[in-house]
Nucleic acid binder design. Sequence first.
DNA 1: GTTTTTTACTTGACATATCATGTATTGTCC
DNA 2: GGACAATACATGATATGTCAAGTAAAAAAC
Lengths: 159, 159
Amino acid sequence: MKPKRPQILEEIHQGKPLHSRTQEAFLGLMRTANVVDRKFEAVVAPAGVSGQQYNVLRILRGAGKEGLPTLEVASRLVEQTPGITRLLDRLEKKKWIRRERCPSDRRQVLCWITPEGLALLARLDGPVADFDRHALGMLTAAEQRELVRILDKVRREGS
Amino acid sequence: MKPKRPQILEEIHQGKPLHSRTQEAFLGLMRTANVVDRKFEAVVAPAGVSGQQYNVLRILRGAGKEGLPTLEVASRLVEQTPGITRLLDRLEKKKWIRRERCPSDRRQVLCWITPEGLALLARLDGPVADFDRHALGMLTAAEQRELVRILDKVRREGS
DNA sequence: GTTTTTTACTTGACATATCATGTATTGTCC
DNA sequence: GGACAATACATGATATGTCAAGTAAAAAAC
């Protein structure tokens, strides 16, 4: 059986062979995440939000009436960002969230989603659910489990 | 056997269960790529380049004396970017690449890596090779193959 | 052979990300 | 309880990314 030429090489128009399977996996991981992320952005963009902004709104919807302090929002984001303050600034300017200094600990700033923010999320719930089903829906249940397991291992044992 | 609480939920401090395994896979993919990418950036940052810039230089080193037209460089990048022109502008300003209008097709602009660019890459070859070995080195050979296969399938059959 | 289309970028305007540093508040240790 | 460290952000400077138009050259159509 002859060794198969890696698919990723076709995609990045490269002739030279890869150095190793770990490199192939690394490139595949980056490219796949990039491709899938762009699709997600395309789903939420019509509503006028970026993927990050959408995620923040989801987090605040999940938090409910209690709200969440700024850095707690940041820590719940899938993609970590040091620019959380300005991300929230922009969401506040668009009236999708509101903020208030916490009375019990005046260092903190609590954030809540507004009714306008909730309405925006509601409009996107359908499309996002569709995206969830389709983005990785071509994988069998076993493949999905295996992918999750391997990715977990990468993050858990990452040196 | 009781169902295991997904690792990703711990990582993003979330109490609520996920809607589906596809969503878990989606979140895991995004987060893993983000984590691994940050590590890679940390490896090349000491040399004064971003991950994208490093990749462009690698591509041009691979191209050799012939050089490559701008959009061909863009198409070989793992993460696609519309901002290729300015990315190259910055590399040119730092003398790591040089550019010249193609005589046979004056629409194109050919790019080459400079000796300074090659020297920079040479300094990073060791650290990057180490990174390649360690970033996904915790996976067994079988897991690496399986990961590559599944990721390929996601990109290939992405609706 | 001239109009039309396509290709290969380039440019300007703007959004977003990143880093270092600054400030207010709280917690901790004698 | 007063100095000092740690926490929770905010801000300015700068780099980078993204989108919409624009331009010039080549290719295709007529």
